[in-house]
Design a protein around this nucleic acid. Structure first.
Lengths: 233, 233
DNA sequence: TTAAAAACATGATTTGCATCAATTTTCCTG
DNA sequence: CAGGAAAATTGATGCAAATCATGTTTTTAA
């Protein structure tokens, strides 16, 4: 299963990072960061960063799972899920954009490291390898977002939900069976559909033998089938 | 009018660049680029870069207007409009992502400069100011994409079209009256709706006195009104 | 200059999905 | 462990917008 899910490329909501940008720092630079670094723990549901507030620090998710979403007119759009290793707040790097461009909240209990954004700016200026790594991260987020964008605008409900399920199994939990931390409502928000539709569609998938559910325990039985649903519907 | 449109922030499809990243290069570095630089002219409709092909060069739009779109399953999603000054192909900067992540084609006759991507990579590594400028551009694209993403997923037809019209007037043509180079079909593609719906909605806007149309000559009469439509519908 | 093709327009029909309404189940918390 | 709240479920209804069908105008190219 693991192989299958890995093989299948979904418009996933998570960006996987192979190598941390911090690996490219010198000992001295690492110290500079660690000196001023602060670690904060957030409980499930708490807001980690609020859109529109000043970005004084870049956030590094070290444990847990965060939801990164854009807000406008009391509506929200989930941009991505930040898993351990993800950076939050990079879009505030430009000096004329010194405010969070999105909100981040904790799906589950989440630990975050805070690094002064000016230090990051300084490192980009001074360490080419680090700058390259940051560029790579930004490009990765961009590519992932294109896929998700396409998914939410061009697919219909079955395809959208199938995509999210494959993403959760393949990228977040990385196994075919997992205890879903998200409610149906959150699943709905993630796939851009109504809660009721999510429930009906999940039931359908179960009846077709593509998934199994016992409460919040999910099991993906037929990833290839789900993938086909993505492509068609 | 110019003031009004500038004041109104839309989820616009264009990224405006105040300062070029190339301004941060030394004379020597500029020469390095110009030595190997090639200029190519594309006719209306021609493909400038095709998704999936190897990115050997970064493209700089110097004249004209290009459509940047993501393709999948014979469907396409317009990511942004590249106006003069825009860079195309930055998402291929990561070494493990050496292929165009989207297609670009010319809306109208367009002139493009080709710069070897390895030179750009080298400059990011060596020139911190340049690296910072590239990061800024990537962040700008990201922020713009969030707005567009939200617009296409959370607004309904009236709001989507109003947004695009404001964007065209305010950011691309930068005046209240302009000769629209795009067909209704292209307008539909941009706003993620059917051609017929675009036609009907435009008619509505005209009847409500918000715009005037004579063939392809567009005039925005009531930008505030259109903006309200964005917010509500 | 004329034929063919593309773009524009408008009315009728269909449909995917949200919304609404009403139960049942699960999960907390005092 | 009880009872109140939130979450999950199921069915009925409504609607925005796509699709279909058909006609008109404009553009293009031979």
């Amino acid at each position: 299963m693991q192989n299958i899910v890995e093989r299948i490329k979904t418009s996933c909501t998570v960006v996987n990072i192979n190598k941390s940008c911090f690996d490219f720092l010198t000992e001295e630079e690492k110290n500079l960061i660690e000196q001023k670094q602060v670690t904060v723990e957030y409980k499930k549901g708490e807001i980690i960063a609020k859109q529109g507030t000043f970005t004084t620090h870049i956030l590094v998710v070290s444990e847990g799972l965060a939801k990164v979403y854009y807000e406008e007119n009391n509506k929200s759009l989930i941009l991505r899920i930040a898993a351990p290793g993800s950076l939050i707040g990079l879009t505030s790097l430009p000096l004329n954009q010194n405010v969070f461009q999105y909100t981040a909240s904790a799906y589950i209990n989440t630990t975050v490291k805070l690094i002064e954004i000016d230090i990051i700016r300084k490192l980009i200026l001074e360490n080419g390898q680090f700058a390259t790594a940051i560029v790579d991260i930004l490009c990765g987020i961009s590519i992932q977002k294109n896929g998700r964008f396409f998914c939410l605008t061009h697919r219909q409900s079955y395809g959208k939900l199938a995509d999210i399920i494959l993403c959760l199994a393949g990228n977040i939990f990385q196994q075919d069976e997992f205890d879903l931390a998200l409610s149906r409502k959150e699943l709905a928000e993630l796939s851009g559909m109504s809660t009721e539709s999510v429930i009906r569609t999940l039931k359908h998938f179960q009846e077709d033998g593509m998934i199994e559910m016992t409460g919040k325990i999910f099991k993906v039985i037929d990833p290839e089938g789900l993938y086909k649903v993505c492509q068609l519907g």
